[in-house]
Design a protein around this nucleic acid. Structure first.
Lengths: 131, 131
DNA sequence: CGGTATCCATCCAGATACTG
DNA sequence: CAGTATCTGGATGGATACCG
């Protein structure tokens, strides 16, 4: 029988909406930016270009895997530039691209909002948890 | 023996940095906002207050679990107001708080950046993937 | 109507080991 | 120095069933 369960209907609607969501630019930006290591790497590079080892020291606590993965993503997205110097041992420098810099600028705006309003959010949380 | 492995050192550094990261307001904002359903619910409520059932229809594809979970989080963070009318059957209305509205405003700014620059990011991705 | 409660598959971050 | 390869446990989201 061609019975359609609620789950199937939702699953179908989900596919449609996932496509809609995936197409939303702000959603895509979130996917790239809303990551712990991404924000840290971007912030670290905001001041000055850094080598791989400098980044891993500056962002203490990051594993090689995560640092490399993050840098690859940022490079792929055109936010970070990767320059290899074929010395022995190898030297790799990471720089913010103009696009990357413009993103860091926007993130600063978000940070401003957060600094202004997060205390309020935290008060709301405490209030909610106390009830 | 008191040998300290690289993993242990990194784990320790991680704890310190996690605390640092957790204390960063913009990081905390990201934790609350960088969520698929959060953005959708906030956007849906930007225009007008909605009932639970209206939200679940408007954000097709969301499961009850995720919708409820998202709304609870938003309520806890003071971004959304939940009003129960004790009729039979029950009626629950969700409204953006002033704080929630100000967040939606900021998100609009991010959206603007995304709309302006995501095409560039996508070109960068295609370029990278083609190499 | 507006939820809980529960179970389950899946994805992903982190740890470890190895390499050009 | 700057990675790659591989494994695993814990969190996360979805499906389903039930409730005031």
């Amino acid at each position: 029988m061609a019975t359609t369960t609620a789950g199937q209907k939702r699953a179908e609607a989900k596919r449609e909406y996932d496509a809609y969501i995936a197409a939303c630019p702000s959603r895509q930006l979130l996917d790239t930016v809303a990551d712990k290591w991404v924000t840290l790497v971007l912030t670290a590079l905001a001041d000055t270009p850094l080598r791989y080892s400098e980044l891993s020291r500056r962002i203490a606590g990051v594993s090689q895997k995560m640092l490399t993965q993050t840098l690859r993503t940022l490079e792929r997205d055109g936010l970070v530039d990767r320059a290899v110097t074929a010395t022995v041992p190898v030297r790799v420098d990471y720089t913010l691209t103009p696009l990357g810099e413009s993103l860091v600028t926007v993130m600063a705006g978000v940070k401003t909002w957060a600094e202004a309003h997060m205390p309020e959010v935290q008060r709301a949380r405490r209030r909610y948890d106390r009830r």
